[in-house]
Amino acid sequence: MTRPYDLPSMSALVCFEAAARNLSFKEAATELNVTPAAVSHQIKRLEADLGTPLFRRQHRGVDLTETGAYLFVALQRGFEGISEAVREVRYPGEAEDVVIRATTAVSAFWLTPQITAFWKARPDIIVSQIVSDVAVPTGRADLSIHYGMLPEDDPACIPLFHDDIVAVGTSDFAAARRVSTLADLRRVPLIHVVAEGTDWTGWAEWLNHFAEEPPAERGIAVNNHMIALQLARDGAGAVLGWTGLIGPLLESGDLVALTPERMPSPQTFYLQTHERASSLARVFRDWLVASQR
């Protein structure tokens, strides 16, 4: 009898998800209460099974490859659904203190560090995330982060930050392709984010803002902003980045601004409070908004 699901070792998948989320074998090992060697062994086993590397091992740590980023996003979606079902079965009618929904990129580059800082101030309040790039109803979430036009006269929606959009890539990419001007961008590979239910600014709109012609070629299209950023970090092309999200990548030098031009984002990152939000969820909401002032 054939297996209904074509899956590798679940232990290897769990280790990979933890290591990808933390971008660290050591932190994944601490989280899973195993040794870093055990995590490394499971990931090597998974890479051998899939026939492709999932991480780039570097002196300062690890980064996801394009394939690794793709698998990580898929696993997060699957684990999210499993976790929610188990939670409902285990604690019917109960929930964590705070549940907040965000996209993968917002969670990885902005929200998770914010939650870590909040825990230091209020360790008594448990904050959980629902990480999803699919436009679905909020479900169990008390709060959710959106990118779009801020709804007018809606006290439930509060702006978080309104940032700039810049063209970014690696320093090696900029040097090899000799990119320093807007005109240069029209002759290099561009990475496009095309995702249903989102309104990310595209290359044509960004270049038009500076009275430049749209890109000459179609470039690379993906449906996830985090994967797009990973492709850029791999040197595959240039991508548009929102300064409020990719600050850590710019500070580390993983990505650099390819040209000096900055387009004010036409949309806003805002926080929505849902009817089910508890008093503790509102405490976290107020802290999160105040931290951006």
Results as ranks from 00 to 15, higher is better:
residue 1 M to Q: 04
residue 2 T to K: 10
residue 9 S to H: 07
residue 9 S to I: 03
residue 16 F to V: 00
residue 38 A to N: 12
residue 42 Q to V: 09
residue 56 R to L: 14
residue 57 R to K: 15
residue 59 H to C: 05
residue 59 H to L: 12
residue 63 D to Y: 11
residue 67 T to V: 07
residue 68 G to E: 04
residue 78 G to N: 09
residue 82 I to K: 12
residue 86 V to Q: 05
residue 88 E to Q: 10
residue 92 P to E: 01
residue 93 G to V: 01
residue 94 E to Y: 08
residue 95 A to Y: 14
residue 95 A to H: 14
residue 103 T to I: 06
residue 111 L to V: 09
residue 112 T to I: 13
residue 115 I to G: 00
residue 120 K to N: 10
residue 122 R to P: 01
residue 125 I to A: 00
residue 129 Q to N: 10
residue 132 S to L: 14
residue 135 A to G: 05
residue 138 T to Y: 14
residue 138 T to N: 11
residue 141 A to E: 06
residue 145 I to R: 08
residue 148 G to H: 12
residue 149 M to Y: 09
residue 150 L to H: 08
residue 151 P to Y: 12
residue 152 E to R: 15
residue 169 G to M: 03
residue 181 T to K: 12
residue 187 R to S: 13
residue 200 W to S: 06
residue 205 E to G: 03
residue 206 W to G: 02
residue 209 H to M: 03
residue 209 H to G: 03
residue 218 R to D: 00
residue 228 A to Q: 02
residue 231 L to K: 15
residue 233 R to E: 15
residue 236 A to K: 15
residue 238 A to N: 10
residue 239 V to H: 10
residue 239 V to T: 06
residue 245 L to T: 01
residue 245 L to H: 02
residue 245 L to F: 03
residue 245 L to G: 01
residue 246 I to K: 08
residue 247 G to W: 01
residue 249 L to W: 03
residue 252 S to P: 00
residue 252 S to R: 08
residue 256 V to N: 02
residue 260 P to M: 04
residue 262 R to C: 04
residue 262 R to Y: 03
residue 265 S to Q: 07
residue 266 P to W: 07
residue 272 Q to D: 05
residue 281 A to S: 08
residue 283 V to H: 13
residue 284 F to Q: 03
residue 288 L to E: 02
residue 293 R to C: 07
